[in-house]
Structure formats: structure tokens, C-alpha cells
Design a protein around this nucleic acid. Structure first.
Lengths: 353, 353
DNA sequence: AGTTAAAATGACAACGCTGTCAAACTGCAT
DNA sequence: ATGCAGTTTGACAGCGTTGTCATTTTAACT
């Protein structure tokens, strides 16, 4: 029933080590030997034992995905992207939802890494922004990839320095550019008083999106009014509250569009508008951010910035694998900066006259 | 840096095996020795090596969660429930999204089990209903728990037989009862022509929910009309289509309420009604099923049947752990049948006169 | 105190693989 | 042929636990 590497070795008439080499795609195995072993593997239906490989090897065949995000769609996309890569590489994925607030977070993660001897880690925001975690990871010498909001700064400065040394373990999502774009979309529709309902202040994505929004206004000679900025969290409830607060003295401010920090906020704003009998998009345009599935399930469907999370996370995993084991893969086809694109649906329209 | 069981043994002045016993909470360790070892563990900050435990032991310290479900909320809840249990038990979770359609599904799962030497498996619908997978699992002798739609049939028949032998590895969600209840809710509101938009026909939950709905009608002397039943899938789009189809000849049928197979279908129906300018709930009541977060984010908020997925999956894991290793835990506090409860929100109201 | 069963502990060999390093090949220039 | 560097292969010792079984200690009796 249970086939070991030894059985395969005997069957193929080679040593265990050679079988091991084939399994691990190590170089310096003659083609003929390779085929011989592969056939034996197939004939015996050999399944390498993960535990034994993990124990004998220098690191295990597992990577971790750490997140603290209430958005189920986001998390699932992240998981699936990483998972698809893991499947290809024959790795396992250890998922680790956690609470960024927890002061002992880095310890908890360290424990997980040591217990499972993880080969690497994918960090999603906001964990990817926490210095204590990064420090711990560096100390431990574990490979990791960070998903970050922003642009790759390494690209521009110090071109003399070996560029592959700096920030070579980050994947960027250019929220700034995306927010800029979506704001321009609104401006082009004739909107002049555009509000912004922020997500959690601690998240870098919030400041990036806000900055993009503000720059767009500036570039189009529209004034930046702090009263048009609502500071909230990335939640539906916050969207409801924010919209209510922003639209309270509507007559004074004449807000004709609200840019939500994410889709949930936008959905909340949509909900609030309905309570206040405001027609969308005739009287008010609302846009989201992220393009989670439910942005297509609201009424009207949300204009938003599409972010291919599963693709992004797949590239994160790809980047991570390029750093583990011997893997001398070229990083060539790894995209490290993603810019969400505007998806126009029904929640935005021409500014009312 | 790296502390092994041997270090702990020396530090505590006992043998490795004794430390191992303490770690694994095996009985027959004197309290005094136990404390001694635990202190050494703490002082040295010892982390048992998962790979070594997996290799040396008869099964690994990992269980699997297998699912094929497009609903991110559902999956996340399932993961979190199982995960919380895993944390307590010191197990790892291997998640395995897959495609139920795939004819080689059971082989793929078998491979996963053997590679990781999983201690057990939690199966969610519809995988939990597939006989080929169950057979494979039985053959392999792996512990598993199935999440099923329906009621525990073992409870009633053959009370003479040892009851713990039959169906002792299933957790039931009584969709029938829940659908009955929610239909009664509608009937009590005065609705007489209630439609039902089904989910995927292959899922047991669909037939259970449909049966509950029909029984409720019967018990209240309302006729069962097949034209009021739309056969679709568990998706938003299907909800849209279903509602359109059902309401097409509205005058003839006089449908005043639609029961959605799940929240997504209900949200779709909501969307369609808006397209057709039908006021909810004044002209038409719509109810969902499952109480996923977005049932609170629609307009109006959905009346639905609340299903505590994370609690359910936690109990599934609990049940699974009661079957693994030596664990002589009592099953006493494990609930094996859950009945979703009706949550009345704004999408249902009195039938129009 | 003396006997005996039961409980607690320890010695040691697996578990199935990979890292290390030495041995055996290969091809190519002498 | 002969030597030499480079490539391919193999022998063997771990990796850090747990299972088995033997041994020691404890408790519970005469």
C-alpha cells in the first residue's frame, strides 16, 4: 500500500538519492535516468511523504499566508492565488488569520514559522506594513514577500546600487494611481464637489487612495476641502455613517459624488442614500474600490476600481518561490506592481445640473 | 536557537520520552513530573517540530478541509471554525478547494491525504454527499466528518443497535425545518402565493429546503404549484433570472412572495424586482437563506435563515478530533444537528391586499 | 515486612527522506 | 592508451520526534 522512495529506487535500479534528485528536479541527472525513475514513480504511484521531506530537508515544503482582513472575498482570492502556485510547486499552504492589533503578533507568527519550519511567508496588509514583524522575519532569516499599497520606490533612486537587493520582496498595488483615475472619471462626468469616505487610517491603502484623489482634484483645479473627507473604516456600517455625515448639510456642500474607500463603504453609502431618498446616480454618484463580487450585486451596480487579487497573490507566491530553496528561476515574468483599473458601472453618472 | 526535545529532557532531568508524553498530554505522567517538564518547556521556549512529529507518529498533526463552494463568506466561516479548534488542539489545517464535478476528485483527495498523512478530513456539501469520496475515505481508514443537509436519521431507527456506530460522523443542518419556518413566517404575513427559487439541483440542501417549503404550504392548506418553483443555481445571476421568470406573468400567478434558495438568489431577486419597478416589501416579499453578511447590505435588508457556519464547522472539527489519536474525549458537548433560525428584516412584509 | 499488580519512566529503534561527501563514470585533450 | 576535469551516481548518517517494550517506581494489598 505504502510506497517509499526505497521501493522506487529498487524498481528503477538506482539509488534512493537519485530518486530524490528526480523528485526534487535537481539538475545533473541524466535524461535517461530521469525517465527511468519517473516511470517507476508512475508505475508504483509513489507519493513523496511530506513529513519526511520536511524533516530531512533544510526547510519544509510549506509556506504561510498571514492576513487580518474581514473581507471574505479578499481573503479567498488571496488564498486561491497562492494556492494555485503551491499546487504547481508541490507545496502546502498554512493559512494564518490573525489580529494585527495584538502586540504579540510577531511572536505568534514566529512560533508558527518555527513549528512548521515554513519555507516562506506571504504578508498581506496591514501586517505587511508592521515593522516589528518585518524585523522578526529578518532575524529569523525566513523568506517573505510583502503585499504593499504604493509604488516601488527602489526603481528610481540609487540606480548605481545593485537594484535587486532593495525592495525585491514586495508586490505593490498602486492605489494612488487607481484613486487618481477613478477621481478623474468622476471629474470628467462634470462633478466638482467630490467627497471621499476613507477606510481605516492605519492602512497605507487609505492614505494612498486619499492622496490619489487629492492629486486628481488638484490637477483639475478643484479645491481640496477637508469637510469632504470622512474618516472611517473599511466597513459597510462606516459607509452608511459616512454618507449620512457627508450629506447632512448637503445644500451647503453640494456634494454630487462620493468616492468610497472600498466597495463595502460604497455599498454602505448606497444604502444611506436610499434612506435619504437620494437617487443614484441621478442625484449622486457613488464609486467603490476593489471590485469585490458584491459590487455587482448592489443596486445600482457599483463603479469601482478592479483589483485582480488572485492574480496579485499568485505573483506574490511566485516571487516567494523564486527565493526559496535552490530555485534559480528567473524573476523575469513576475509582475511586481499592479494598478487597479476603473470599471464603470451604473452607480456613477453625469453630475446633476 | 533551535531547542529540541532532548534539550528539554536534559533540562528537566527526565527522558525524551517523558517529555514527549507531556507534550502529547498522554495519561500516566505524575503531576510532579508534568510540572517539571512544563517549566523546562517554558524556560527554553521549546517548540515541538511538526515535521518530526508527523513523521514519527502514526498520523500527522494536520487535518484537511475540503470544499467546493463559490460563496466566500461560507468558506471563510468554515475555515475559521475549524481553525479555532485546530489551534486549541495544536493541529494544522490544510485547506483544499476543489471541483466536485471532476471525476478524479476522490483520487486527488486521496493523494492529498497520503502526502500529508492527514489525521482527518472535514467534508462540506456537496462533496460530503458524494459516495465515491466516502468509499475512498473508508477504504483508506481515514477519520472524517461530513457536513450534511438534513436530519440525523440514526436517532430514530434501531434503538437496540449500538447507536454510536451509525452516522456518528455527520453534522446535520436541518434545512428542511428552517425552510418550513421561513415559509410559515411568510404565510403568517398573509401570503398565499409563495414562489421558491431553488439552488443547484444536485445539492441536498436544495431538495431539503424545497421539501420544507412544500410541507409548510401543505400544512396550511395552500396548494403546491410547480409553476411557482424556479430551478436554478445558488448564484446572484440565477436569482435575477428566476425572479424575472417567476414574475413575468405576474398577473396570472399573483406571486406576493419569493423564497430564495440562499441569500445570493434573494439578492438577485431583489435586483430584478428593482428592474421591474416592484417595491419590496410593499408589493413583493423576498427572503433569503444563510444569513451571509451581505444580507445586511442589500436594500432593503434581507429576511433570511441564520446559519452559524463557524459554530457548525467548529463542532465538525470537534467531532473529528474526538475520533483521532487516543483522544478519549466525551462527545457529550458536541452538537450534531443545527437548525437555522429565521431572522426577520426588511425584505418581507404583509401581503398586499 | 513481603508480595503483587499497576503506574510511571526510560532505552532505543524506527519513521522516510535529504545533505554530505566520496566514488564512479563520462568525454576530451594529450 | 593515459590523464584530467567535469558530470553523474551512490553509501550512509542524520533530521527530531514517537512507538515498542523493558525497567523501575509506586501503591495496595496480605
Amino acid at each position: 500500500m505504502k510506497v517509499t522512495i526505497n521501493d522506487v529506487a529498487k524498481h528503477a535500479g538506482v539509488s534512493m538519492k537519485t530518486v530524490s534528485r528526480v523528485i526534487n528536479k535537481e539538475p545533473s541527472v541524466r535524461k535517461k535516468t530521469y525517465d527511468l525513475v519517473m516511470q517507476a514513480v508512475k508505475e508504483l504511484d509513489y507519493q513523496p511523504n511530506t513529513a519526511a521531506r520536511n524533516l530531512a530537508g533544510t526547510s519544509s515544503f510549506a509556506i504561510g499566508l498571514v492576513y487580518d482582513n474581514p473581507n471574505a472575498y479578499y481573503v479567498i482570492d488571496m488564498q486561491n492565488g497562492v494556492l494555485s502556485r503551491c499546487k504547481d510547486e508541490g507545496y502546502e499552504l498554512v493559512i494564518h488569520p490573525c489580529c494585527a492589533q495584538d502586540p504579540d503578533m510577531h511572536k505568534e507568527i514566529a512560533t508558527m514559522i518555527q513549528r512548521s519550519r515554513l519555507a516562506g511567508l506571504v504578508l498581506t496588509p496591514p501586517l505587511s506594513e508592521q515593522q516589528d514583524i518585518i524585523n522578526m522575519l529578518d532575524e529569523l532569516g525566513v523568506a517573505y514577500v510583502r503585499l504593499l499599497s504604493g509604488q516601488n520606490e527602489a526603481a528610481s533612486n540609487d540606480p548605481g546600487d545593485a537594484p535587486e537587493i532593495k525592495n525585491n520582496n514586495c508586490i505593490y498595488v498602486d492605489d494612488y494611481a487607481a484613486a487618481y483615475e477613478i477621481t478623474v472619471h468622476l471629474i470628467n462626468l462634470g462633478h466638482k464637489t467630490i467627497a471621499f469616505a476613507c477606510g481605516d487610517a492605519e492602512h497605507k491603502s487609505t492614505t494612498e487612495r486619499l492622496a490619489g484623489y487629492q492629486q486628481a482634484l488638484k490637477d483639475h483645479d478643484l479645491s481640496i476641502n477637508n469637510e469632504l473627507i470622512y474618516e472611517g473604516t473599511y466597513s459597510f456600517e462606516s459607509g452608511v455613517k459616512g454618507a449620512k455625515a457627508l450629506l447632512k448639510d448637503n445644500n451647503a456642500a453640494k456634494i454630487t459624488a462620493i468616492l468610497g474607500g472600498n466597495d463595502e463603504i460604497a455599498a454602505g453609502a448606497l444604502f444611506a442614500s436610499r434612506l435619504m431618498n437620494i437617487a443614484i446616480p441621478e442625484q449622486l454618484s457613488i464609486s467603490g474600490f476593489e471590485d469585490s463580487p458584491f459590487s455587482r450585486q448592489t443596486w445600482p451596480k457599483l463603479t469601482t476600481a478592479h483589483q485582480a487579487n488572485s492574480v496579485i497573490s499568485e505573483h506574490a507566491a511566485r516571487l516567494l518561490f523564486s527565493k526559496t530553496r535552490g530555485s534559480r528561476k528567473q524573476d523575469k515574468d513576475i509582475i511586481t506592481t499592479f494598478t487597479p483599473t476603473v470599471v464603470v458601472r451604473e452607480s456613477t453618472g453625469p453630475a446633476p445640473v
